[in-house]
Write a protein that binds this DNA or RNA. Structure first.
Lengths: 234, 234
DNA sequence: AATACAAATCGATATTTATCAGTCTTTTAC
DNA sequence: GTAAAAGACTGATAAATATCGATTTGTATT
């Protein structure tokens, strides 16, 4: 099922510097070197792209599809940290630590993933300060996102957390108030730190109150302001 | 009350490269430049060292004392992310984002803080790839710590979270099974994401079960293995 | 030492959230 | 096209956690 090739979708890293801000700081020879140390694999919905605990040898960039980034918590429970879209660089966390993956990635869709050798990446960091700076920018942004997520998970109750989840999905992932959800109900629960049954209940409540319209996986946010209010009041 | 000076404790950044791994990658002229763009301030226990939302112009290194790093969540609740010890570099999160502090720092003790100009630091990152690499290492490590914290906060119940808090304090902060707690009961609650009353209750339970010995702020861990077991079972 | 004030404590109660059991619906597999 | 499996949903109940009020302890101030 996994096809090793450089697809039409992603022929060459040289094209990627248009799409990935971080890569735009690299010179032509640097991009050529990256390109020589990468390969592509296709995944079907549900497949694990990489698994927490295994050794980290490559960074990951999706070129098509969506995936979930999650950590495996207590008693097989998953905590979804965020949803991965094409052209984000994934796997930095392990770069300089213990060369292990500290989270898992699973495809939510049929996806194409480009894997880049960590050593090629590290070399670029060492030789190109602008690239290093972009990399740092990226890391620190994620740190700030983490803080917000911790506050949501630990201080808000279920309505607030679901509101946060919906705001995140519509604002950051789908960039639309109207979208076709790739997440199962269980995934929504894992994203917002509650049981599946509770997630279903709150979503249904929001639906009944006219805040959202939810039919299966078709989701439309009808009253965004109300979601923001619920998010703030916890 | 705040005294602006370079104290005996921290005369010169040149001395700091012995104590701060990240600074050891800097050259002599780079350290001299850092040293020229820094100043020291003393804080009393309870004082705010910097406040979430204000503009970030300096990085912070404690040279004496302890402090708490926390984000201000919903309804004035605090979430303590971690405890700051001397010789850690604080404030990176804001370096390349929006130049705002995304968390507050408050002294838990009488502390001495060294403030380093952000621009001097950024310059070192741009010109010294080894330093940049150390900086990245630091960021990614914090990212991994964040994941663990999120799992603890969102998937464990109170006993597990208190166990995690105690393991953290004894392992990472005091590096001893026997210590004089700088945190109030409210702080312990804010570190573990629960109400003050609940934190008190669980601590008392642990005390009654002989897992810890707690008298006021004197804390001794009697059965570390048991704490680990409680942490794992949630 | 007496007073004032903040922090810690604790039992009772209310609220939030998870769990469970069962039904219904949709998708998948042959 | 039908059976089987997985996912979605719901109400009832149980468990976890927060809140409240009252009391005690500790600490700082005069």
């Amino acid at each position: 099922m996994a096809k090793f090739s450089k697809s039409d979708n992603c022929k060459n890293c040289l094209d990627c510097n248009m799409r990935i801000p971080m890569l735009s700081t690299l010179s032509r020879p640097e991009l050529i070197e990256l390109n020589e140390n990468r390969f592509e694999v296709k995944f079907k919905a549900g497949e694990t792209i990489f698994k927490q605990g295994t050794s980290a040898t490559h960074l990951l960039i999706l070129t098509t599809g969506l995936a979930k980034l999650y950590v495996e918590g207590v008693q097989d429970k998953q905590l979804i940290i965020r949803i991965i879209k094409p052209w984000e660089i994934i796997g930095q966390a392990s770069l300089y630590f213990d060369n292990r993956h500290h989270y898992s990635i699973a495809a939510l869709d049929n996806t194409t993933a480009c894997f880049i050798e960590i050593s090629a990446f590290k070399k670029a960091i060492q030789t190109n300060p602008l690239f290093a700076e972009e990399f740092i920018k990226n890391c620190t942004q994620k740190g700030i996102f983490s803080f917000e997520k911790m506050v949501s998970l630990s201080q808000k109750q279920m309505h607030g957390r679901i509101a946060d989840g919906l705001i995140y999905l519509s604002g950051k992932v789908y960039e639309d108030l109207n979208f076709d959800l790739h997440l199962s109900r269980q995934d929504v629960a894992d994203l917002t730190g509650m049981s599946k049954d509770s997630a279903i209940r709150i979503l249904k409540e929001f639906h009944n109150e006219g805040i959202i319209e939810l039919d299966g996986r078709k989701l439309k946010i009808l009253n965004y302001g109300q979601l923001e209010r619920i998010s703030e009041t916890g």
